[in-house]
């Protein structure tokens, strides 16, 4: 008998977990971490105690869930599917690989199965938690933590509108003024490329792409972004993509719904003023 355990790392996960339960056709028991989630070793140990008797254990994809759920899979000797975007059956899932160049159908041949899934690919179905999980003991200690309350901007992975900037933004102040300015006017979030993050123009948690955040807004505005495979892997599920780039041959124009060949330093402020 298949039994589904849903793990919420944050309250916002509940509706996505409800949607996943519907997609896989199982009712699901939802446990939610109460308070701060501890480092992975303690979190996975705590989850292992709850996992007994479940054939499927699912969580929303995030850096945190990848950290914890893969360790849990190791503890349970489980099969694992990362970043599922579709449930074909309880033993078959579709997931992207090679920076989204391939959609792979993965078959699991073992139970339990630990799954992380991309919330944008599933409906939102409200679900209440069945149990709160509080963890106190850890071998690894967390000595500092930054980020979390980033002003009034929405979370990148939930945002309806995102403005992202790339390498030409020069420095953090310019990035914040140009990209942040339009994002605030739109009530949206700010994203960045790896090139922008690596050169210190943008904070690491803003990186969008294969190895950063996967986003799915209604509107994604990419300013000064070339359109590398790695960046595009993170934005393919956006409803409308806008590219602003001085180079008419930039690869991003192949993916953009609207392409504007222009200097971002004039086009973005103009857009900010007029929207």
């Amino acid at each position: 008998m298949p039994r589904l355990l849903l793990v919420a790392f944050a309250p916002a996960d509940n509706a996505a977990l409800g949607g996943f339960a519907e997609a896989i056709g199982l009712e699901g028991t939802l446990i939610a971490f109460e308070g701060e989630v501890p480092p992975a070793d303690a979190a996975a140990d705590a989850l292992k105690k709850e996992a007994d008797g479940f054939t499927h254990i699912a969580a929303v994809s995030s850096m945190q869930s990848k950290d914890v759920m893969a360790r849990l899979a190791g503890l349970l000797d489980a099969a694992m599917v990362t970043d599922a975007i579709k449930v074909v059956s309880p033993t078959q899932f579709v997931r992207p690989m090679v920076a989204g160049s391939v959609l792979a159908t993965v078959e699991t041949m073992h139970e339990p199965v630990v799954i992380t899934f991309r919330p944008a690919s599933f409906p939102k179905v409200e679900k209440n938690g069945d149990k709160a999980l509080k963890v106190l003991e850890t071998t690894t200690s967390r000595t500092s933590k930054s980020g979390g309350a980033k002003g009034s901007r929405p979370d990148l992975t939930q945002a309806k509108r995102i403005v992202s900037g790339g390498r030409p933004l020069k420095d953090a102040a310019t990035f914040e003024k140009i990209i942040g300015g339009l994002a605030d006017k739109l009530g949206g979030a700010v994203g960045a490329t790896r090139a922008a993050v690596d050169s210190g123009i943008a904070a690491n948690e803003l990186q969008v792409g294969q190895t950063g955040k996967i986003v799915a807004p209604d509107l994604y505005i990419a300013a000064g972004i070339s359109g590398s495979t790695q960046h595009m892997a993170g934005i393919k599920d956006s409803k409308v993509i806008v590219a602003i780039n001085t180079d008419p041959d930039a690869p991003i124009f192949e993916f953009a719904d609207f392409g504007l060949v222009a200097d971002l330093f004039t086009a973005v402020p103009e857009l900010t003023e007029k929207v």
Binding site: P39, S62, T139, K145, S146, E205
Partner: peptide, 15 residues
Amino acid sequence: TVTRETDTGEETLVL
């Protein structure tokens, strides 16, 4: 002592 990237920023773990 490891500084690691997280969903919201960074944190430091001692292990």
